[in-house]
């Protein structure tokens, strides 16, 4: 489609303005993490220093919080990938009574407000559940966070894999069985290679979701366990710690940009139909 010169110029300006609006604050945070003054007055910068970075590296609390976030995100992602992929395979391969309802229930957790999920899980985890034969209490800590995060991480894993499976020919599985492959061989040689890149993309997204989750986390972490978002929220209002918060935010940004790029590439380009993606 051809646009007139003024129209193109206007659209170009709007695009630039919007992108600046989105990304300038991130640049400012990054810049502030190298700013000698603690002042939050904006732009208020005066020279460069890496002091805050070394200070952040040396202090235990933010490092521990970062590690905790990574651990929770990693375990929740692995659980989500296993459950999400299996669910996606079931939903694309079989027809059964109530399939539409199950499909809806599978993706619902991501649409549910975190506050609702948080309250519901907090309620459940804090109670002693009596099953007659035995009773147990989930309690709070690393494990409760993993369970809570997995509930919405499953959805992204499922969505990515199900989209890939829907795009590939259903005959592939039949062709594999026809050529003599048992179920496990078909999974190993055909299904898994086809969904591998979709699983990776879903996994990265799930990790990112879990990593910065704060609402559900607040309800399900308990008192002895702190994730990075919790630490940032707690320290953001303490003037002496604001530079450290800037450093942590910048660090996370630097790590997540290549991951986001990779996730996007994998879910767009890694089409099962064009075999070049695997290379």
């Amino acid at each position: 489609m051809r646009l007139s010169l003024p129209a193109r110029a206007a659209l170009c300006l709007i695009t630039i303005a919007t992108l600046l609006f989105l990304y300038l604050p991130l640049v400012v945070v990054a810049r502030l993490s190298f700013n000698p003054a603690k002042s939050v007055a904006w732009p208020g910068w005066s020279g460069y220093t890496t002091d805050w970075w070394s200070k952040a590296w040396e202090s235990d609390a933010p490092r521990e919080a970062l590690l905790n976030s990574c651990k929770v995100a990693l375990v929740a992602t692995v659980i989500a990938l296993v459950l999400g992929t299996l669910a996606a395979m079931a939903m694309t391969r079989f027809g059964f009574f109530g399939k539409d309802v199950v499909s809806f229930l599978l993706v619902l957790p991501i649409a549910l407000p975190g506050i609702v999920t948080g309250i519901a899980l907090q309620n459940t985890f804090s109670r002693t559940i009596d099953l007659g034969l035995f009773s147990f209490k989930v309690g709070f800590g690393f494990h409760s966070l993993v369970i809570a995060h997995a509930t919405f991480c499953v959805v992204v894993a499922y969505n990515n894999v199900v989209a890939r499976l829907r795009r590939s020919s259903p005959n592939l599985l039949e062709a594999s069985a026809d050529l003599g492959a048992h179920g496990s061989q078909t999974f190993r040689y055909i299904t898994f290679p086809l969904v591998r890149s979709a699983m990776l993309a879903g996994g990265i997204l799930a990790f990112a979701l879990s990593f910065d989750e704060i609402v559900v986390t607040t309800f399900t972490a308990g008192s002895g366990f702190e994730t990075l978002p919790q630490w940032i929220l707690a320290n953001f209002s303490r003037p002496q710690n604001v530079p450290l918060v800037n450093v942590m935010a910048t660090f996370v940004m630097i790590v997540s940009i290549p991951l986001a790029w990779l996730a996007q590439r994998l879910s767009d380009g890694g089409d099962g139909g064009d075999g070049g993606a695997g290379r």
């Binding site: 069985a177 026809d178 050529l179 290679p193 064009d274």
Partner: peptide
């Protein structure tokens, strides 16, 4: 089951495995 029958099928859309080379496709069975 299909894998227990001594028959093979040529599908309408061919159903070639997109991530395998032609040689690997033919070797699959």
């Amino acid at each position: 089951a299909p894998y227990d029958r001594d028959v093979n099928t040529v599908f309408q859309d061919y159903a070639l495995f997109p991530h395998l080379t032609v040689q690997q496709n033919v070797e699959y069975g």
